[in-house]
């Protein structure tokens, strides 16, 4: 009853588009992350010249649908000769470039707010303790603020990563041949909607499962302080250091 041959053939065709989906995902996620650092830095600044533009950016990119953003960047910008003659056209000419740009700009807005939430939730006392010891602002940022924020935002960011992977499917609407694009192409030719989309959904499901596991492993590695209290075995006071490997464990 179930046409396994067709399903297998479809899966293979869809998997051939997997590199496109994955490169879309990784490049837009990483570019978006870098951009979000800049935006959140501006957002939390005390200078209104920096924080207001950042707030506008965040509001625009969180407040409009991603598909509209993508269409605006791909078709909208392409209508202006001034854009076509600029150096940006090298990237904006190709649908893949536009998709990456659009996805990155969108995730930057959300990620900036996620990071800001993490920053606000750092116990202020820990920052004061760093200041009281004489840490410079840079050292404070590197050693206290960044690590604590990272641990606070991981759960929220893993959600963002999952949403981004699913958002790459929208690139098919601007003629990028990712998994969803190929799926639609197959359906156009065979009219077997149910089977083809089920295969595509399965592929996205597997990818998202991998992301979830990876994030959870990362969370586990980074939060020994949230785990169970270790069993206490008193050790004799050591007067010579360097012989106990545990105390020389490196930290993140």
């Amino acid at each position: 009853m179930i046409d396994f041959a067709f399903l297998l053939d479809t899966l293979l065709k869809l998997l051939s588009a997997l590199p496109t989906t994955l490169t879309l995902f990784f490049s837009s996620l990483s570019l978006g992350l870098l951009l979000s650092f800049a935006i959140v830095g501006m957002r939390v600044s005390r200078c209104p010249l920096l924080s207001y533009p950042a707030r506008c950016y965040i509001m625009i990119f969180r407040g409009t649908p991603l598909i509209i953003q993508m269409y605006l960047i791909y078709y909208g910008l392409g209508q202006f000769p001034v854009v076509r003659d600029s150096f940006a056209w090298v990237v904006l000419r190709s649908p893949y470039g536009c998709a990456v740009v659009s996805l990155a700009l969108c995730t930057a807005g959300y990620t900036a707010e996620i990071i800001r939430g993490g920053l606000l939730s750092i116990p202020y006392g820990q920052i004061e303790a760093g200041q009281a010891i004489g840490m410079s602002r840079l050292a404070l940022l590197r050693r206290i603020i960044a690590p604590v924020t990272l641990r606070q935002v991981l759960p929220a960011y893993s959600t963002e990563a999952i949403l981004m992977l699913k958002a790459t499917a929208l690139a098919s609407l601007i003629t990028v041949w990712d998994v969803t694009g190929i799926a639609q192409q197959i359906i156009q030719r065979t009219y077997r909607t149910m089977e083809v989309f089920a295969c595509a959904a399965f592929i996205y499901l597997v990818l998202n499962y991998i992301i979830v596991r990876a994030m959870r492993w990362l969370e586990h590695r980074l939060t020994p302080h949230l785990r169970e209290r270790p069993v206490h075995t008193p050790t004799k006071a050591k007067l010579d250091a360097g012989s106990n490997p545990k105390s020389l464990r490196s930290s993140l």
């Binding site: 078709y75 392409g78 209508q79 076509r84 000419r93 190709s94 649908p95």
Partner: peptide, 11 residues
Amino acid sequence: DEHVLDLQAGR
């Protein structure tokens, strides 16, 4: 109409 737009955009 999308391919007409891209035709004019030179893509």
